[in-house]
Write a protein that binds this DNA or RNA. Structure first.
Lengths: 127, 127
DNA sequence: GCAACCGGTAGGAATCTCCCTACCCATGTG
DNA sequence: CACATGGGTAGGGAGATTCCTACCGGTTGC
């Protein structure tokens, strides 16, 4: 049980998968705009039964995008933005690409890099 | 074929879903670092058969994260970062949330570090 | 206590994902 | 022309996703 501040790499998959659903993105938007809300308020926003919303909340909770607080018989879910910060961090190295991309310039650069690639082998993983 | 520069809202789903696979994120990383590459070079990086890699490339191509160029009998795939810019744009309204929280954490850490002597031990704060 | 309310779990059907093995077409090269 | 190389498509199987209808355990109010 030692994982003080590190984030397991499996988390990134779960966060992106969670964000792939429009319902779940809408839940995050709702909580961002209105703050913590109980389930029945969240569920009222969607054309779907409460158990399905509950499942979506479970997915968001499991990947750390939500926190849960018990208030009597209600459970309030609130946005937890840290995983989104990690997504932003993952995007960082790509920023320069969309910044400088105003023509076929990067295609030329790509060809150049392609030509002069030395032999560093073996890590094509992301992190 | 009827949306030259506009972005249908359905695209966001596809982009996040594409990014949910570690294989596809690794493809993007590879193309970012080495520029455009033919399929057999990309496929050599993964412990999977070429048709599967081909499917992954099709997914990335379909959501606009890749461009395809024919060179003889090879097809070169290159990174197309625009959809990632849209992801970054989607993240923007959340930035303030993790900034303020990071600020609070920062203050706590600074206090801890600054205050080397254990005057009062607050051990209830790891996670 | 008893009924209404909040919200999670069980389990099932339709659909999607991800990998595989075959197979096919196109482009080069002897 | 014959054949190797590059790479897409077909279709199938195991497992995950997403919705549903039931159902059940806690809280709150009469």
């Amino acid at each position: 049980m030692a994982s003080p501040t590190t984030d397991p790499p499996v988390r990134q998959d779960a966060v992106f998968a969670a964000l792939a659903s429009p319902v779940r993105r809408a839940v995050l938007t709702l909580l961002r705009e209105r703050g913590a809300q109980p389930v029945h308020v969240i569920a009222a926003e969607f054309a779907m039964r409460r158990p399905s919303v509950s499942e979506h909340l479970k997915v968001l909770l499991a990947c750390g995008l939500l926190t849960e607080t018990r208030h009597g018989r209600e459970r309030h879910y609130a946005l937890r933005p840290e995983p989104l910060r990690e997504v932003a961090a993952w995007l960082t190295p790509y920023e320069q690409f969309w910044r400088q991309r105003l023509g076929a310039l990067d295609a030329l650069l790509a060809e150049d890099l392609d030509d002069g690639a030395p032999g560093e082998e073996g890590d094509a993983r992301d992190r």
